[in-house]
């Protein structure tokens, strides 16, 4: 099981390393989206601080969504995916590894850059830390639920838009708890409960996302 995870994780990271552009583009997209909002709403500092958490989180959701097609589509097209399904390795291990690779190349960079965007919005230091923690905890949920959405729409026409339709409503709890943690910290309330709820959400999403992704991959390859 562990060997299978390490095997697929290493391969996916190696592939991602040789296609750095993909991961980088997602990151740039995230920065652009977050930089657009002040131009639409006005740059009054109080207002910016108030919308910061929401804007950054919605930006992260959209960036994560944009990165989903590359999770399985290329492997489906070149035949690697069916090799993984018929292989000697348990499918859940393969899927865990692929989702982990996706998070390491998408969620983690998003989390690391989020505090920088928070600075743009004038968030104070402790709120920046909370933002970092919340995005770190929340993005694995996006990868897990997103993987299920990407697997369900594999080989379907209009897959990209459809994936958004399927997974964005399911991202709501991550958005609420994630942005809520930052807002709470801004108004002097302890962000702990929000972060705990994010953790609980992750604990639910892990088995659910894994099961749904494995089942959807089998359907897509049937």
């Amino acid at each position: 099981m562990t060997a299978a995870i390490v095997l697929v994780l290493r391969r996916d990271l190696l592939v991602a390393l040789r296609r750095k552009g993909d991961a980088l583009n997602v990151l740039i997209f995230f920065v652009i989206v977050a930089s657009l909002f002040p131009l639409g709403t006005g740059a009054e500092p109080g207002q910016l601080r108030a919308i910061a958490a929401g804007v950054i989180w919605v930006g992260a959701l959209l960036a994560a969504l944009l990165s989903l097609p590359r999770l399985f589509a290329a492997d489906l097209a070149d035949g690697t995916l069916e090799q993984m399904v018929v292989s000697a390795q348990p499918l859940p291990a393969v899927v865990v590894a692929k989702i982990a690779a996706h998070w390491l190349t998408t969620g983690l960079p998003l989390a690391l850059i989020a505090p920088l965007l928070g600075l743009q919005y004038g968030l104070p230091g402790d709120a920046l830390l909370v933002l970092l923690g919340a995005v770190l905890l929340g993005t694995p949920v996006l990868s897990l639920i997103g993987a299920a959405g990407a697997a369900l729409t594999l080989g379907v026409r209009g897959a990209a838009v459809l994936t958004g339709l399927l997974v964005l409503p399911l991202f709501v709890p991550a958005l609420v708890f994630g942005a809520g943690a930052v807002t709470a910290s801004l108004s002097g309330i302890a962000p702990g409960p929000h972060l705990s709820l994010l953790g609980a959400l992750l604990a639910v999403s892990l088995p659910l996302g894994l099961w749904a992704t494995c089942a959807a991959l089998r359907v897509a390859l049937d």
Binding site: R18, S87, A88
Partner: peptide
């Protein structure tokens, strides 16, 4: 999967990896 090798229509060779890396990965998968 430990006893069966299936080679489908698509070659399952990744552009981003070298020929040797591709083969090594496929073998480990099996």
């Amino acid at each position: 999967g430990r006893e069966m090798l299936y080679l489908g229509h698509a070659p399952a060779v990744k552009d981003e990896l070298s020929v040797a890396e591709n083969l090594m990965f496929s073998a480990r998968l099996s």
